[in-house]
Simulated assay, not measured.
Amino acid sequence: MNQPFIEVKNLKKYFPIKKGVFSRTAGHVKAVDGVDFSIYKGETLGLVGESGCGKSTTGRLLLQLLAPTEGEVRYEGKNLVGMNTSELRKMRRDMQMVFQDPYASLDPRLTVGDIIAEPLEIHQMARGKEKDRRIDELLNVVGLSSYHAKRYSHEFSGGQRQRIGIARALALNPKLIVADEPVSALDVSIQSQVINLMQDLQEQFDLTYLFIAHDLSVVKHISNRIGVMYLGRIVELADKRELFDSPQHPYTQALLSAVPTPNPLAKKERIVLRGDVPSPANPPAGCTFHPRCPAVMDRCKTVKPVFQNRDGRFVACHLYE
């Protein structure tokens, strides 16, 4: 395989917990706690896990919308961490984001045309008639019409708003798009339309995706490889077929056992996890999954498992050491 397009090494993000009159730091929420992965040119890497596991924070760290506490994010060999504002602005032409909430991510005071034009104006890539032509082109690409440019976002449905968000992300001809649960707020029938649109755009514009979601069926449909996150760490990363056919980490096995099957007669053994997800402000020692793991060993309670490569797939579990 070629060199990674995006390479993430030991990425961490700790948010301070402030207490008292003087707002002293009493601890940290370990939202992302040592994440490693690579994304290759033209592929879609899916990132799944329960709410609060650090998926969205990882996406924002990738684009430097949040400054990491520690670690590296390399884009085509260049480390984005520590870049100054002007350097990051140039890099952001190549990296855009589609946000989860199509209602909150669009400014209600701007027309659709102004929303799409904003990145073009900031980066001075089009003016006048050229800008208007580009807006019309982007609206048509995402399945909307030129006359929609003069309307406001509140006049559109959720699916149409997400199309507007995708058009805005495409305005600068990016190479990478981080899609942060782009269909989770949409009806099921609209979800498939947006997913199919994103696949068509990927082929048309040679895009690379980091696709963040909690719906395993959606991730399976669009992704080439899938990473499974638990409490700020990736516990398994593999090709989607390998992951669904033979999940190795106990957490991945439990997640996949909960996916409903269309055949009501098919028998499926459900793995029910005991207990609740621990707090990221006070994660367990050793393997963070050990309080809920059905295959827990004494070693799991004290020693953090290594995220290791096993014939092209990665897993962090003492069962395979």
Rank of each mutant, 00 (worst) to 15 (best):
I226P: 00
H318W: 07
E236P: 06
L273C: 11
G34S: 13
I177V: 12
K220S: 03
L63A: 12
M1A: 10
T69P: 10
E70Y: 13
E130L: 15
V228I: 12
K131E: 11
Y152V: 06
A169W: 12
M1G: 06
S56F: 00
E321P: 08
K131I: 10
M125Q: 07
N282Q: 14
D298Q: 15
Y230T: 12
V228M: 09
M125G: 02
I177G: 12
G34W: 14
E76R: 04
S223I: 05
V228P: 09
A171S: 09
Y209W: 02
E87P: 01
Q160C: 06
N140L: 13
L65W: 04
E269F: 02
Y209V: 08
N282V: 14
L106H: 10
G20L: 12
G227N: 09
E203F: 00
K268E: 15
G77W: 00
P68Y: 09
T208I: 07
C300R: 10
G20H: 15
S56W: 01
Q64S: 12
L65G: 07
C293Y: 14
V112E: 03
D206E: 06
A169D: 05
E242Y: 10
E181T: 14
A281I: 07
P174Y: 08
L170R: 12
L237C: 04
D276S: 11
G312R: 00
A171G: 08
N263H: 00
K129I: 10
A171T: 03
P119V: 09
I135T: 09
K19Q: 04
E72S: 01
L65M: 11
D215K: 02
K18V: 13
H154R: 13
P16I: 05
P250R: 08
K240V: 02
G42Y: 05
A171R: 06
R133H: 15
K268F: 04
L176F: 06
M229L: 01
Y230G: 06
E72T: 03
C287S: 14
F244E: 00
E70M: 14
K12I: 14
K267P: 05
R225Q: 01
V98Y: 04
L237I: 04
R270T: 11
A266D: 14
E121Q: 11
